[in-house]
Simulated scan of single mutants.
Amino acid sequence: MYTISHAARLTGVPAATLRVWERRYALVEPLRTDGGYRLYDERALQVVRAMSSLVAAGWAPRQAADHLLSEQPGRDTGGTDTTVALETMTGLRPAPGSAPGSGRGRSPAPVAAPAPTEVPDGDPLAALARGAAAMDPGAVSAAMVEAFAGGAFEDVVDTWLMPSLQVVGAWWREGRVDVAGEHVVSATVHRHLGAAMEACPRQPGGPLVVVGLARGSHHELGVLAFSVVLRRRGVRVVYLGTDLPAQDWVQVVRRHSPAAVVVGVPMRADVIAVRETAEALHALDAGFPVYVGGAAQEDVAHGTLPLGHTLRDAADLIELALATHGSTVPTR
């Protein structure tokens, strides 16, 4: 959580402007300390950055605010609270109408997955939420170790980790998990995914994929998990992490000459920065496809190619792209 002065430094928007946007447009609703001081979370900073970008591009503040509020998941757009929480933490979302484990090549046909609020407290899918509620990193870590010992990495991510994070989101919305508990889960999951990434053998040659997040985007669990899946399949991956400006993407691509680029779009507030990155990359005219993955991938367009909402299918698409490198670019 960030004070208003810290939020102003991180976003480049003056504190006075943050107060005006809050008062006039209800753009963000910062928490308040007992003393009345504002506290901003990461999601609020993302919205502020997007608002700043729109205003800088010539939008009227009211028009920009109305656009962002209408685009926020859960604000009369058909999104659910649990989907919002999952998108914020991971940048991934189960494909519409799919149940956990409903990836390609599975049988029999899956039955509908229970809503996160319907998962019993003792269910394995609630293990992360229990650890979050207790603010117990050890319990979260033990649940991760047990789950990933029981199946292929991408299957566990698609059928256990993503649904489990939905449960965390549901518990947070219900008040059973606070922000600190959510951070315990996020940090622990990040540590495990990072360790899995480092444990993968590095390939000395072959086509390379660059993966990361655009300027102002910080929710990296989805793209990090995807990078692990690619590396486990023997794909050479340069993982860039979070908050990379478009000009730095260009420098990386010039240095590494990738066969494909993947930019995460965890939230709709990230769309503008991802479009900026995509346009800068396309301007190089280097012939590589720019794929996008995450909850808001379909909103980007601008010559990007959506990867879908399961790691297995997205990785299959990238492998096909690498196999056909230099010929027709595969899409969903």
Rank of each mutant, 00 (worst) to 15 (best):
P110T: 13
R19A: 00
Q203F: 07
V238C: 01
D121A: 15
A132F: 08
G222W: 06
R32K: 15
V84F: 07
R191F: 10
V47K: 10
Q63S: 09
M1A: 15
L69S: 12
T277F: 07
P201M: 03
A314N: 14
P207L: 12
T88D: 11
S227R: 00
G293P: 07
G206V: 09
G79Y: 02
V28G: 04
S217W: 09
L128G: 15
V55Q: 04
A60E: 13
Y291N: 04
D123S: 13
H325R: 15
R9H: 14
A196F: 05
D316C: 05
S186W: 04
V168A: 02
V223F: 00
V177M: 01
A180I: 08
R232N: 11
V156N: 02
V20E: 01
E87S: 14
L307I: 10
L311T: 04
G36Q: 11
Y239A: 15
V292Q: 12
V119W: 02
P14W: 06
G216A: 05
R215N: 10
A7V: 04
L244P: 09
D270V: 00
V13H: 00
P289G: 10
G169F: 02
L45F: 07
R24D: 02
S164C: 06
V265A: 12
V167P: 01
V140T: 10
G293S: 05
D178E: 06
A129S: 14
A129L: 01
M51K: 07
V84I: 02
Q297W: 12
D41E: 09
L224V: 03
E22G: 01
E319F: 10
I318R: 06
R49T: 04
F288V: 01
R255C: 00
E29A: 14
G212W: 08
A56S: 12
A56V: 09
D136M: 13
V145T: 15
C200I: 06
R130D: 01
Q251M: 07
P114F: 05
A273L: 05
Q46L: 08
V179R: 15
T80N: 06
